[in-house]
Structure formats: structure tokens, C-alpha cells
Amino acid sequence: MKHVLLMLLALLLSSHVTASEDNYAFDDPNTRAQFLRLTEELRCPMCQNQNIADSNAMIAHDMRRKVYALLKEGKSEQQVIDYMKARYGDFVHYQPPVTAATLWLWAIPFAFIVVAMSVVLIRRRTTVDDDNIEEKLAKADAMLKQEKE
């Protein structure tokens, strides 16, 4: 039992190991870091819930090769992202751009907070606004007294 648990733990911990097996040589550690970052950020169009670093689909393989080639040419990270977006659409990058259609992703949580806050505030104001409170308290006292008797 202990072994099974240990193995499960090991499995959980190893989840971040990526499947890419290609060997790409870099002269500059910065370019290497860029390559690793880009292949994590770019999404595979074939196997949609994987990034291209993680996927073994042919298209992901080709995209890694292209990212490598573009970085070797001296392209910046943004240029590589734009290159892929021009071919596969916004879909290919895990960071969605802010457009009229995607604005809601950011707007709805804030709108929800604003609406909830205003509801709470309005509610509170209306309950405080009770002017015959004395009368009601007297009535409640009378009821309590009655119960005691």
C-alpha cells in the first residue's frame, strides 16, 4: 500500500515533464529559455488541450521546428507568436487578446462584484430606514412578556 502511494506521488510530481524528444542546440542560453517559453505558450492545433512542447503530434513537431528556425533567424518572441497567429489564428496562443468578444472574460467578474456590492448596500439602506422601529420593539417586548406569563 505504501509503495502504491509513493508511486502515485511520484506520478503526480512528474506531471510537468514534457513529451518533446527533439534535441535542439542553442548557442545562447537566452534563446533556449525563449524557445522553452514559446513552446509552452503555443497551443497545438491538433490536440487542443496540449501546448506544442507537450504534444507529439506531427503538427506540434513541425511547429517546434519552425519556432527553433525563427529564433535562429533572430526573430523576437512576439514575432514568433505573430507568425503562428497569422497561420493558425488567436487560438494558437494561450494568452487570448482583448477584443470585443473576449472583453467579457475580464469584465464579467468585475461586473459581478459591482452588482453584488450595490445589492448589499441598497439592502442595508432600506432596512436601516425603518422609522417605526420603536413601535415594533415595544410590540416584541409585549409578546415576550406574554410568553413568560
Binding site: 492545433p45 491538433m46 503530434a57 506531427m58 503538427i59 513541425d62 511547429m63 519552425k66 497561420r87 493558425y88 489564428g89
Partner: peptide, 12 residues
């Protein structure tokens, strides 16, 4: 080199 496919946005 499957370059043309990449340029066309082919996924498979």
C-alpha cells in the same frame, strides 16, 4: 519540409 502546410494553417 511541410512548410507549405504550416503556411496554409493545415492541422492534419
Amino acid at each position: 519540409y511541410r512548410d507549405m502546410s504550416l503556411d496554409l494553417g493545415v492541422t492534419g
